[in-house]
Design a protein around this nucleic acid. Structure first.
Length: 288
DNA sequence: AAATACGCCAACCGCAAACTC
DNA sequence: GGAGTTTGCGGTTGGCGTATT
């Protein structure tokens, strides 16, 4: 028996969020900040599980979410980042300010998958330079509930396509959790976020990572300073109201600079295999 | 106009990493 | 160091809207 679903508690709402719930959640987070997802629903007066609240906030309610169509530049970047990183949606999303991993994942599965297949590129499974260690069929034993309505969308994702010859395994930085910026809270915290503390905590991170330094350099070169940018792997997503916050952007939002960063990625990930040991720590460092 | 097929995307689920004690 | 808890990620599903028959 697996563990019980997190939302199995009697009385918890599931399914689409109502405007009222949205308002409650938004109001609570604006007052108290993100985090404490487990206890948040209770405190906010929501009959939802914490996970559901987090998801709703991250994917829909955050004020910095960019709505609207994916631009051709973003489209292009997603394709190329995916070719390097595979299904690391959160990492890819981290390069696209205002886009969420869910959005990119959906976009990939609905648009780009087809597009690439039509082009014969079929980059739908694995990165062309790297492969996730021990990449397994992600959900081979998951039951399919709705026997039939769906058309086996993305069924063979992740290597269930058995007959494929074994690919050369190359080091890939193991998928890591993209950690949100830590925001110190106090009891009376009203979730104001001053730029000094923001840059203090992030500069700390910068100092720890050689690649981050490089990327910061790239950022400086590449027209930095927009207030709506996200951090690289630190994801300044704790920003509740971007308009209130002056925050350094480590990464560019314009396509030219994204291109530059992509090239850095590409270079990094295509290093000679003999350098992988070194790259291991190097790669790890950029994911911290 | 009705039925069916398909596309899209918000939300759920399970797993595992990170954190806390 | 280990157990328990919390958080984040990626895969998958369900349901609504639109297109096609």
């Amino acid at each position: 028996m697996g563990r019980a679903p997190c939302c199995s508690k009697v009385g918890l709402h599931k399914g689409p969020w109502t405007p009222k719930e949205d308002a409650l959640l938004t109001k609570y987070i604006q007052a108290h900040g993100e985090g404490q997802w487990k206890s948040l629903p209770k405190k906010a007066g929501l009959l939802r599980c914490g996970k559901s609240c987090r998801l709703r906030w991250m994917n829909y309610l955050r004020p910095d979410i960019k709505r609207g169509n994916i631009t051709p530049e973003e489209d292009d970047l997603i394709i190329r980042m995916h070719s390097l990183l595979g299904n690391r949606w959160s990492l890819i999303a981290g390069r696209l300010p205002g886009r969420t991993d869910n959005e990119i994942k959906n976009y990939w599965n609905t648009h780009l998958c087809k597009k690439l297949k039509n082009q014969g590129t079929d980059d739908t499974d694995t990165p062309n330079t790297l492969e996730r260690p021990q990449q397994e069929p992600a959900s081979g034993n998951k039951k399919k509930k709705n026997g039939g309505k769906k058309k086996n969308k993305q069924k063979n994702k992740g290597g269930t396509n058995n007959a494929e010859p074994p690919k050369t395994q190359v080091y890939l930085p193991k998928p890591i959790r993209v950690k949100a910026l830590y925001l110190p809270r106090t009891d009376s915290n009203t979730f104001t976020f001053d730029s000094n503390s923001a840059s203090a905590s992030t500069s700390q991170e910068k100092e720890e990572s050689p690649l981050t330094k490089e990327l910061n350099l790239a950022s400086e070169i590449g027209n930095m300073g927009e207030s709506d940018g996200f951090g690289f792997f630190s994801e300044d997503r704790d920003l509740v109201n971007a308009s209130d916050i002056e925050c350094h952007s480590y990464f560019p939002t314009d396509h030219g600079s994204l291109q530059q960063l992509y090239e850095e990625y590409y270079h990094l990930l295509n290093m000679d295999h003999s350098q992988f040991v070194e790259m291991n720590s190097f790669g790890e460092s950029l994911l911290v």
